[in-house]
Write a protein that binds this DNA or RNA. Sequence first.
RNA 1: GGGGCGGUAGUUCAACUGGUUAGAGCACCGGCCUGUCACGCCGGAAGUUGCGGGUUCGACUCCCGUCCGCCCCGCCA
Length: 605
Amino acid sequence: MSAPRESVRLDGQGALRRSHLATEVGPALVDGEVVVMGWVHSHRDHGGVIFVDLRDRSGLLQLVFRPDVASRAHARAEELHREFVLAARGVVRPRATEDINPKLPTGEIEIEVHELCILNSAVPPPFAIENETEVDEQVRLRHRLHDLRRPVLQNALALRHRVYQSVRSTLAGQGFLEIETPMLTKATPEGARDFLVPSRQYPGAFYALPQSPQLLKQLLMIAGFDRYFQIARCFRDEDQRADRQLEFTQVDLEMSFVAVDDVLQLLEALTARVFAEAGGVALPRPFPRLSYADAMLRYGSDCPDTRIELELVDLTDLFRESDFRAFHSVVESGGIVKCLPVHDADALSRGELDRLELFVRKELGARGLAWIRVGADGAWQGPIVKFLSESERAQIARRTAAQPGSLLFFQADSFEHANTILARLRSDLGARLGRSDGRAWAPLFIVDFPLFVREEGRLQSAHMPFVAPLDEDIPLLESASEKVRATHYDVVLNGNELGSGSLRNHRSAVQRAILSILGYAKDQMEQQFGFLLNALDSGAPPHGGFAYGLDRIVMLLAGTDNLRDVIAFPKTQRGQELLMESPGEVARAQLDELHLRVVRERGES
RNA sequence: GGGGCGGUAGUUCAACUGGUUAGAGCACCGGCCUGUCACGCCGGAAGUUGCGGGUUCGACUCCCGUCCGCCCCGCCA
């Protein structure tokens, strides 16, 4: 950090009051007097005349200082440096034709300054306040104030504001009440790792920050509010990603007396309206619906980017009886075999195939990357070709529609792993080979998720334990748990999960049955979910809802692939906020009050 | 928990296979300049090569450890 510029004499704002934002000044105001305030974006001192580009949140405006017109203002202008804060009173002048700057919205005019107040000095910025500036993100986050002055971030946060406003007006117009729920709440056994807040008054007890307002909004339904929403901050202490922050914002909503279709209709209308109002984007309607099973089958993902014109092919049954041990043994032990066919793939060289294999092995943990290339003469090449029987080749060729120029990628692995790897290959190759269908926006609903998934032998909630099963599947709860479909639904846009929701269990018997299948004994159930079960027994209406990841919506509308670009003060991947440097240590006395003692591992200082 | 990429001046980058005093653009500071808008010209300052250790006559470069950033797997109901 540089030292402050102490030698600069500063002016008070005095009687000057801003009359216009920078870009509100235009040709219509020529010869009128204006007062503008903002930052020195750049200055060009010609010895005589001085030009200053003034920047405020609306944009840039050129100020002119002439020694012969206003000598005092001109003299002061000689002291300016970048990012100084100033107030300027002057007269709007048209520029000579040859002096018009077409790159600026205000390029046809300029302000001939008569009075200049230097409201504050500024140390030189660590990097240029320009959109084009490519600066290391660590530097940007440490100097977030300067970063936030860049137009892209100003625009992103303005866009975010419009999303808030549109959500509020749309939902309020649909009869939703905005209700806040507590941030200091109770830890729940399910779900992500909680952020804990130690209690001063109850030694050894902790509040938890909400992972979502899930249970509270259900209680609001039971209390009879009928339609609720909240723009809610949520906290999950898990490892971060480009599209995941420790704290993030949900548009959380819940409604009573509805079926799945009612919620989906509302979600479609809300999503379309917010994208139109806040981002000027017309989403194509109606949103197609895709079952979870089909999504996994065709795309290997439950949030596919359906614009990519590549689809997976399942070949598991082909290798149930096969002499190709590598694939056969995977199928025998419960895994799957799938293929990603890429036609007209001559652009992918042998060297690139090797790099792809290295990539999926090292970064995605794949066992390998089997591939088959169909030559111009129709001959099959590749390391696994020799292990395939005549009929297997024929079947593969038929199902993948292989033709000269095709490249077939195979994964034989667990359902999850094989799909994760092929889904990633699909999107990477789709981008690299330009296999998009050209649509800008591809929204869809994913429906018919399973209620349970088996993990390490045990049944777990696919999403969370309060999701209601489809009515017709309730008889299967005990007998064929894994076949039970959930009322759960996701909204997916361009390969991003925008949010998810479901109908909830409003009958305590069903809720108890599900908890029991999840392995909760009766007393555990009462201890951990007693308040919910009691609530259900006190007259719970059928209800369901949804939660959008608001940050992701803004991210997509802003055209970035990084959540940190749409959050004013985001955290790094390791959870630090570099401007204020949180988290930070606290004084011993603070810990004592909270009845806490820090235990350091060996080697920590 | 694991994998990949990266860290050299304020900033963006360079510095061969280990070899003189670690360079350049922009920014910054000073001077000059009355129509620039990537202003121009002249001059200047600016570095613990993330940190610690090792190998070597010699380390930005090689080795080990560690910290930080980004991306991904796991994780995130």
